[in-house]
């Protein structure tokens, strides 16, 4: 299989802004699926609402674009109805850990066999740039004009609070690693969550003083390092996998 087979080319160009991080994650997901050689008939992609939520419609497989926050329960219904399907959730941080947070807690607890790819750009981008649960403390957004007063949500902590768990943190810059962990997440039986550190130039970065998407990408290069092995939790600036299989 070729990665191009997984993309609906007739839907291009995407709705995403020039310089957006989502395209990279979308393409690496297509690479990972091609690498696994999964036929379209064995795949379903589910998204919620937001910029990342538009991804479902760009994959050349059966796909569902659900309501805000509900990608995981729709995906769980699909998986339980037809366990032969590989079900991939591709959505954003606001969708999956904000409005959909309760579903994340419980689908993780039930260890339902889903691969969840979370584009974490730390902002509500589609609605114009409001504070997300993942917005770093102190950063200014439309709804935190004096800087966010809160620490960002600890997604790793939520996922790894389940005894059996699989969590990966990747970044839009470290693409080889990103592709590898997406592949592992899809292969892993059970709930697998990939937090992809991303960015939004138009509705976040520019207000913070970044001149281009590339400049934001560079912060991922300098801000994150790959951690080998799967022992212990990832530190703030670390990318890698945390898992416990029994």
């Amino acid at each position: 299989m070729d990665y191009k087979d997984y993309i609906k080319w007739e839907r291009m160009p995407t709705t995403w802004c020039p310089g957006c991080a989502i395209g990279t994650i979308f393409k690496q997901t297509a690479f990972a699926l091609a690498d696994l050689g999964l036929p379209a008939e064995e795949l379903t992609v589910v998204s919620g609402i937001g910029c990342s939520g538009r991804a479902a419609g760009y994959f050349n497989v059966d796909s569902v674009h659900a309501t805000h926050g509900r990608a995981i329960p729709v995906a769980e219904g699909i998986k339980r109805a037809n366990p032969r399907l590989k079900v991939i959730v591709f959505s954003g941080d606001g969708d999956l850990v904000g409005i959909g947070g309760n579903h994340l807690l419980h689908a993780g607890r039930r260890d339902i066999d889903l691969a969840v790819i979370c584009v974490n750009n730390g902002i509500y981008g589609m609605t114009g740039g409001q504070m997300a649960p993942t917005t770093p403390a102190g950063e200014k957004t439309l709804t935190s004009p004096h800087g966010s007063a809160y620490a960002p949500l600890n997604i790793q902590g939520i996922i790894t609070s389940n005894r059996r768990h699989w969590f990966a943190r990747a970044s839009t810059f470290h693409v080889a690693h990103l592709q590898r962990v997406i592949r592992e997440a899809v292969e892993r039986p059970g709930f697998a969550f990939v937090e992809v550190m991303a960015f939004c130039i138009e509705n976040f970065g520019r207000r913070l003083g970044f001149k281009s998407g590339h400049e934001m990408l560079t912060t991922l290069k300098t801000g994150y390092k790959l951690r080998p092995g799967t022992e212990g939790l990832l530190g703030d600036g670390e990318l890698g996998v945390v898992k416990h299989d029994s």
């Binding site: 569902v64 659900a66 309501t67 329960p73 995906a75 219904g77 699909i78 998986k79 109805a81 037809n82």
Partner: peptide, 10 residues
């Protein structure tokens, strides 16, 4: 939403 997913899945 689970019921919606299951219905779509057949």
């Amino acid at each position: 939403h689970m019921a919606i997913g299951a219905s779509l899945a057949g």
